[in-house]
């Protein structure tokens, strides 16, 4: 590889610029809208959970960093709630949809994957581990999630998002 850093990084920066301009959106497996519509059959009105200081503190403990925004959009009916969450794996955001029913994760799907490695987290064989999981009293999952070689950070991000979805669901029902 005889790439000069100038050239290789200029190419990288072009890609970053394109990403910033919205030209490159990562690997979109399903539009978040379509995910919500699939869960409910139709698209219900969005609701918002305002992150109070207390919720922010608990969310920060789950994520390992403060939540990015002060309100979280979600969709729900009497039993289920849908949360579209984003978390960084290594360098890029992973967008995932979580369906929570009666305090347990009913369904998880990776909607957009932007990292260059670790996309195996989208496979059902990995995602099925989250099914029926719930929050333990210390806001961890009630089970351990097996990792994927080469996708450790993406797996970690998925686990954090799963915990956050369950936590937000609990907060939204209080």
């Amino acid at each position: 590889m005889n790439w000069r850093p100038r050239r290789s990084l200029a190419l990288l920066m072009l890609a970053l610029g394109a990403a910033a301009a919205g030209w490159v959106r990562g690997e979109v497996y399903q539009e978040p809208d379509a995910f919500v519509a699939e869960v409910f059959g139709t698209r219900p009105e969005a609701k918002v959970l305002w992150l109070t200081k207390d919720i922010q503190a608990q969310a920060a403990a789950i994520l390992g960093h403060p939540p990015a925004q002060l309100r979280q959009r979600y969709w729900s009916d009497a039993h289920r709630s849908v949360w579209i969450l984003e978390e960084i794996g290594k360098e890029e955001f992973i967008t995932a949809g979580f369906v929570v029913a009666d305090g347990r994760i009913e369904h998880v799907r990776v909607l957009v994957y932007r990292e260059s490695r670790g996309g195996e987290i989208r496979y059902p064989a990995f995602l099925k581990q989250f099914r029926n999981s719930k929050l333990a009293p210390d806001n961890t999952l009630d089970r351990s999630i097996d990792g994927i070689a080469g996708a450790t950070l993406s797996v970690g991000a998925m686990e954090r998002m799963a915990r956050l979805a369950l936590f937000f669901d609990r907060m939204s029902r209080q």
Partner: peptide, 15 residues
């Protein structure tokens, strides 16, 4: 953004 510059929410395509 809140008046103090804190991000309230980022809305993308679907929203």
């Amino acid at each position: 953004f809140r008046d103090d510059g804190e991000l309230i929410e980022k809305l993308e395509r679907g929203a």
